[in-house]
């Protein structure tokens, strides 16, 4: 039982971090980045190469992942988002979906469709913790998710850059009148979210292996986490992520593994029907 909870939390932690990534970009630029989860996949493949070919130590690999994620994030904003400003959300959805497809397609071309084992965290015995069995890397992921969600939440509320993104998100024009350069904020958000999620690659990859379509299910499940928690809320993203992870793992255990995605899907439909703004989201009224 406790083992199952640990498993649910460790899976949920990944969703939580991807959901945090969605939020970072959404708050700063009002874009829903369909390709966000692909950055975890990128990180996993960078870790694969770094570990098996270059034999880099873990901390160097994590930095390298973050760097690659940051660069690709900046490229995405610059090439696929920037030019669309003011042309409606649909074009952004199409181009970010394009980026997602391009990234996972390139991974398929370069590394094939078979999952690849990553060398980090590969030979570890499970720990006994609070009466359940859990891998060290899983504990690390759970802690990482909580730390990241809290840290990003605090940074957003307490620092100038964070406040500036919240303000721009609320009123772009008024933000410009305070001297806030929304274009730089948007690039910054894509870079930060890209770096953060790619840095997670080695941890996630240790669990799931590096595979080209790793980002696909992650993308939708992190979206469910966000739908539960409410767009723009970091607390909501973390809690939503853990809820999705627990629902998934418990339904896999008690109903069978083919149910694990379906229950999450049903959960999404219910959330959208019953609390469309999420638990921590705010309803936004619109008038003429």
């Amino acid at each position: 039982m406790i083992t199952t909870i640990w498993a649910g939390l460790s899976v949920g932690a990944i969703y939580a971090i991807v959901a945090v990534g969605y939020n970072i970009v959404y708050i700063a630029s009002r874009v829903f980045n369909f390709a966000q989860a692909q950055f975890v996949m990128i990180g996993a493949f960078v870790a694969l190469q770094a570990g098996s070919v270059l034999n880099l130590p873990l901390w160097v690999t994590i930095l390298l992942c973050a760097l690659v994620g940051a660069v690709i994030g900046a490229l995405e904003e610059f090439l696929a988002i920037r030019w669309l400003r003011g042309r409606g959300a649909h074009n952004e959805l199409v181009t970010t979906l394009g980026v997602a497809t391009l990234l996972s397609g390139l991974a398929l071309v370069l590394f094939g469709s078979e999952p690849n084992r990553i060398s980090y965290f590969s030979d570890q015995a499970p720990l006994d913790l609070l009466g359940g069995r859990v891998l060290f890397v899983e504990v690390l992921t759970i802690l990482g998710a909580i730390v990241i969600a809290v840290a990003v939440g605090v940074i957003t509320k307490r620092t100038m850059i964070g406040l500036a993104s919240l303000a721009t998100s609320e009123d772009r024009e008024a933000g410009a009148l305070r001297g806030i350069n929304a274009g730089w904020l948007a690039i910054g958000a894509f870079v930060l979210a890209g770096a953060l999620l790619a840095a997670l690659g080695p941890l996630v990859g240790a669990k799931t292996f590096a595979v080209f379509n790793l980002g696909d299910l992650l993308a939708v499940k992190a979206f469910v986490a966000l739908a539960i928690g409410g767009f723009g809320s970091y607390k909501g993203a973390a809690i939503g992520g853990f809820v999705v992870g627990l629902v998934e793992v418990f339904s896999a255990r008690f109903l069978g593994s083919e149910w694990q995605n379906i229950t999450v899907f049903v959960l999404l439909l219910l959330v959208l029907l019953i609390i469309p703004n999420g638990v921590f989201g705010r309803a936004t009224g619109r008038t003429v």
């Binding site: 100038m160 406040l163 500036a164 609320e170 009123d171 806030i180």
Partner: peptide, 22 residues
Amino acid sequence: QEGKRVFRARTVEENLKLGGYT
């Protein structure tokens, strides 16, 4: 700007900080 256009979802002090962004 007209219409008392402050950042309504932010606190008074946060609004002032944002004023000093530059």
